[in-house]
């Protein structure tokens, strides 16, 4: 075990899996120069047959991933920013997600798509989206959202070895964050959430980039007497519903934190799931903490106005926390008002 940066953990997984299986190939825009950092050194080690720059043509790149996988390779497609999922969406939605079913199970689609998501870097509207919600609705696509360096390595290795298409969503701007990463063979199974912090009073599900502010919020809330349990689902498809439901059974309260826009976010899906299957455990309404239904603006102050952080999470938790408020108190109503989109 050694401390490593998030981006180095991803790089390590790529090296190890390309060493392990000569059928693993990487292609995408500017991957040879490793502009996003995660592919550094791969060209020198594996050569242009196995890591190759492509023209800028995402519609074709996603389709090529399907073709190369169908022909026998294990494909890693680097899409850079998750906004480019939209550009490449046709083959994602119409081929990658459907090829296995519509071929009657003949096709195997060992495809890993890497894309960096999220705001905070003044990259403006077209390079800051958290673009996984449309993927969740496709069926046939796995979505991994590693929040820590160890999970980044372990989930990427699992994705590359799997036979289903997986979107490996890198938390943008978090590449420098450090954590302990196991050496060598470290595989994190899909569909297994992790309890990042144990607590009794409230369940806080935090996806990917939201784990760090969620843990900071939990720390502050502890000072105020609210004992928060933080759950990192690690993969959104498949999703560890059992872990979230078990936690809600214990705490009776749920806040879901997701950097995606509110409408049809992963947070919405998780909230619906708990409302359907864990209603009897709930002692308070479920709260979603998300980016409101707006584009990510350029100005840093405007950006931080819309992207959730520890403060937003604390407010949402306080609205439904047992210690601070009753559900219908004036304070809770005011807190709710603050959270309305555009307020």
């Amino acid at each position: 075990m050694a401390k490593k940066r998030y981006i180095h953990a991803i790089n390590e997984a790529l090296f190890e899996e390309m060493e392990r299986d000569p059928k693993v190939i990487v292609f995408g825009e500017d991957v040879e120069l490793a502009i996003m950092g995660d592919c550094r050194g791969l060209l020198a080690r594996f050569g242009r047959d196995r890591i190759r720059n492509t023209p800028i043509c995402e519609q074709t790149l996603t389709g090529m991933a399907v073709g190369a996988a169908a022909a026998g390779h294990r494909v890693i497609l680097h899409l850079m920013f998750s906004n480019f999922i939209y550009t490449g969406m046709d083959a994602i939605g119409n081929q990658m997600a459907k090829m296995r079913l519509m071929s009657g199970g003949q096709a195997r689609m060992p495809i890993t798509v890497i894309a960096s998501y999220g705001g905070g870097g003044a990259n403006a509207a077209q390079h800051s989206d958290t673009a996984y919600p449309p993927l969740l609705n496709l069926g046939g696509i796995n979505v991994a959202t590693p929040a820590t360096p160890a999970d980044a390595k372990g989930l990427l290795k699992t994705a590359i070895r799997g036979n289903n298409p997986t979107f490996f969503m890198e938390a943008g701007g978090r590449g420098g964050e450090q954590g302990e990463v196991p050496e060598g063979e470290h595989l994190v199974p899909f569909g297994k959430a992790v309890i990042a912090r144990e607590g009794r009073d409230l369940t806080l599900v935090a996806i990917g980039s939201m784990l760090k502010p969620a843990l900071a919020a939990a720390k502050s809330l502890a000072v105020e007497g609210v004992d928060v349990e933080v759950i990192d689902p690690r993969t959104l498809v498949p999703f560890d519903a059992a872990a979230v439901l078990a936690s809600v059974r214990k705490t009776g309260r749920l806040v879901v934190c997701d950097e995606a826009r509110e409408r049809c976010s992963a947070a919405s899906e998780i909230a619906a799931l708990v409302a359907e299957r864990g209603f009897d455990s709930l002692k308070a309404p479920i709260r979603r903490v998300t980016t409101p239904n707006v584009c990510i603006p350029y100005a840093p102050n405007a950006e931080s106005r819309v992207i959730p952080g520890a403060d937003t999470i604390i407010r949402a938790c306080l609205q439904i926390s047992p210690a601070k408020t009753s559900l219908f108190s004036a304070a809770a109503q005011r807190a709710a008002g603050d959270l309305l989109p555009g307020a």
Binding site: Q59, T60, T62, G63, M64, V66, G67, G72, H73, A91
Partner: peptide, 13 residues
């Protein structure tokens, strides 16, 4: 749709 699938398959080949 075949353009890109064929191109990817040809790259693999």
């Amino acid at each position: 749709a075949g353009f890109a699938i064929a191109t990817g398959a040809a790259y693999s080949a």
